[in-house]
Design a protein around this nucleic acid. Structure first.
Length: 700
DNA sequence: TGAGTTGTTCTTTTT
DNA sequence: GAACAACTCA
């Protein structure tokens, strides 16, 4: 090691400079300490609603104001949306310099890195990205090629294969350990699975493909094999800021270490009680390992909640205590003070729940709460289907986050596959998809054709001397012609997409004759989406990393002037806050999910999910559930309310009744349609009169 | 070998 | 409602 000279901070300069922002006035002492912390590793443990985002925003501004060049700040966030928002806020606070800060998700940051250095680790620079279902499709092809699908004993399906390989990567564990813990039924196949795992890796390299995990893993590989790259990259990361650190996994933690390996200035912000990405390899314990990984870490805490009223916090604190693993956390709020108790609303069924929610929303809007300050949260994307119908019926505009993405729809994937092939003609996964769209080509023929096409060194879009079958030759010619047109670098991206859509339309019509018009609409939307981009590669990356959340449904909503109501999965609501929050479908098997029943760790994660949902609310919180659920072949059956809220005392969570207009407000049992006798109602407590009146007065 | 049909199963959360 | 396996027919 060469001799080191330690450059001292010039405290005189820092002290005497007049800063634009009065940090000490605008922040509480804990926040101020975090924002103005000196260099070195800093871990900020921040409870929900304690101004975590605010702290990061001010930190960015502070660093820029105290002479850190914005390009040397890296802000790693959980979604691209939150990076954008934070930088916009910092810009509003200080000035345009904050826009120069590099920010985004780990995946996006790594992608940029890899685009520059891919050849060093044996990938083409124009590699394309496999999303989860593309990756699964590749695995399916490999699985079939190996003949595993014909075994006597059940071999894992493509989805499971992808999940187990991804788990091994993200947890940095050997495949065997993943199988031991999560897939013991497949342990017999360990050798075959290991074989497939390396075969998959080989396939991706051969065809210049990376899946999501590769973006992280290959970046680390790049650093390990090329220390000069690591040093160069890390040298440009003077300050690394990581948001939502509790949701990072082992791979991401290793990346943070690499990024901070030159300057050592890293600030991680997170809340162990809000860790909700265990399924993706995150472990809330990671956050406590941070001080071990970065010696001399300063640990700071943010404890004062500014978001929610005390009754909402009381409920949140209570819920958290039911966890098997205890959290050292009590949120308190003295700024917000008293407010209404959170309400627990059992509804006779789905329909009633939707009516209740939409009605209260309309009522609150009338009283002056804008729609976009209200949110309906739920565990899974499909939990809101019924409500969406009701909202449409009542003309309440909404946006939905989470759940199915437009970019996951089959017809959009088809178009994207064409674009991918133009970008990276070796992308066998995309070829496989688009060839099988042609009549006369199935898996077998497609495989053969891909062999031919991807082995050509010259132009892949020219028919060679091959024994093509007349069954599909015309279609293939047409496809290649289209590709050659689209490839033309002089053709603007929108026109490229447009050309592909016109080529694809008849195919789409044929394939999806039942709902063709709806899909056509989506395609038009997709063309419009391309307008925002000029570069094809960038458009494709953006599609892969920033999945389009807008479904064709909300295109209409956006046209209205009123900012829409927010529907969101709890996961996608991370980091957001709303005046009023409705948590719907708070049922056993939904939240907590039926998948989590088997182990306590998983159950705890569901509980944290509930905690996240509760702490999104500022003023009002309504937790509702339908008392019966419909399941096919079983008909209606009695649903059980979420275990985490079933036994909460009434002084924390107030039970309410829904009463049909005209029906007398009975104290007990609640008014509801005739149900099978076996359907004994869940524990009903006498409801408070005031709310009964409120709800009964609503014009149902 | 591909296409078309039928029955079955399973459906989380995200980059 | 989609993905999948198993079937038949061309």
């Amino acid at each position: 090691m060469a001799r080191q000279f330690v450059l001292k901070r010039d405290s005189v300069v820092t002290q005497q400079r007049t800063l634009t922002i009065a940090y000490a006035d605008e922040l509480n002492p804990q926040q101020y300490a975090a924002v103005t912390a000196a260099g070195g590793p800093v871990l900020v443990i921040a409870g929900a609603g304690t101004g975590k985002t605010r702290t990061l925003v001010y930190r960015v501004a502070y660093l820029v104001e105290t002479d850190t060049r914005p390009e040397e700040i890296v802000l790693l966030t959980f979604t691209r949306r939150s990076a954008r928002e934070m930088l916009a806020r910092a810009t509003a606070l200080l000035d345009g310099r904050c826009q120069q800060v590099r920010g985004g998700t780990f995946h996006a940051f790594c992608l940029n890195l890899l685009r520059r250095h891919a050849p060093k680790i044996g990938f083409a620079r124009n590699f394309t990205i496999l999303d989860a279902s593309d990756a699964a499709d590749v695995l399916d092809v490999l699985r079939t090629a190996k003949g595993y699908h014909r075994g006597k004993k059940r071999f894992p399906k493509k989805r499971s294969l992808y999940n187990m390989f991804s788990a091994a990567t993200n947890r940095v564990l050997p495949l065997q350990e993943i199988l031991d813990v999560r897939y013991p039924q497949f342990l017999d196949y360990l050798p075959e699975l290991q074989e497939m795992q390396s075969e998959y890796a080989r396939y991706k390299r051969q065809h210049s493909l990376m899946d999501y995990d590769d973006l992280l893993q290959r970046s680390l590989e790049l650093f390990e094999q090329h220390d000069e790259v690591r040093r160069e990259v890390a040298a440009r990361c003077r300050h690394v800021l990581v948001d939502e650190y509790q949701d990072t996994n082992a791979l991401q933690a290793a990346l943070v270490r690499a990024f901070a390996s030159v300057h050592g200035n890293v600030m991680a912000v997170g809340d162990d009680a809000q860790s909700i990405y265990r399924f993706r390899g995150a472990d809330f314990r990671n956050i406590f390992q941070f001080p071990g990984q970065f010696p001399q870490t300063t640990v700071l805490k943010l404890e004062q909640n500014y978001r929610s009223t005390q009754p909402i916090l009381d409920l949140a604190n209570h819920v958290l205590q039911e966890a098997h693993q205890k959290y050292d956390k009590q949120l308190f709020s003295d700024a917000k003070g008293k407010g209404d108790l959170p309400a627990l609303v059992p509804a006779p069924d789905n329909r009633f729940e939707s009516r209740f929610v939409s009605q209260v929303i309309l009522q609150l809007r009338e009283q002056g709460t804008p729609l976009n300050r209200m949110a309906v949260l739920f565990r899974s994307g499909f939990n809101s289907y019924d409500l969406e119908v009701e909202l449409n019926r009542r003309n309440i505009p909404f946006v939905k986050y989470g759940g199915l993405k437009l970019s996951e729809a089959a017809h959009i994937k088809d178009i994207v596959a064409h674009l991918k092939v133009v970008e990276n003609p070796k992308d066998a996964a995309a070829w496989n998809r688009i060839l099988q769209l042609l009549s006369g080509i199935g898996p077998k023929t497609a495989h053969q054709l891909i062999e031919w096409i991807t082995s050509v060194s010259e132009d892949p879009f020219v028919l060679e001397e091959r024994p093509y079958s007349p069954r599909y030759i015309e279609a293939l010619k047409h496809l290649f012609e289209t590709m050659r047109t689209v490839r033309n670098p002089a053709l603007p991206l929108t026109e490229q997409v447009d050309t592909l859509v016109s080529y694809y339309e008849p195919i789409c019509k044929e394939k999806y004759y039942e709902d063709f018009p709806k899909r056509l609409q989506d395609l038009e939307q997709f063309v419009a989406l391309a307008d925002a981009f000029t570069d094809r590669a960038e458009f494709l990356s953006s599609l892969a990393l920033d999945p389009i959340e807008l479904t064709s449904l909300d295109a209409d909503a956006l046209e209205e002037d009123e900012p829409p109501l927010v529907l969101s999965t709890i996961h996608s609501a991370k980091g957001l806050e709303f005046h009023t929050v409705f948590l719907i479908h708070a049922l056993e098997g939904v939240l907590p999910s039926a998948y989590s029943f088997k182990d306590n760790e998983a159950l705890d994660e569901e509980l944290r999910l509930l905690y996240v949902a509760i702490t999104r609310a500022e003023e009002n919180l309504f937790i509702s559930y339908p008392m019966v659920q419909y399941r096919r072949y079983q008909g209606d059956f009695l649903a059980r309310p979420c275990r985490f809220i079933a036994d909460v005392p009434e002084r924390l969570l107030e039970p309410c009744q829904l009463v049909e207009e005209g029906a007398p407000a009975l104290p007990e049992p609640p008014a509801r349609p005739a149900l099978p006798e076996k359907a004994t109602p869940p524990k009903q407590s006498p409801s408070r009169k005031k709310d009964d009146a409120d709800i009964a007065d609503l014009p149902f």
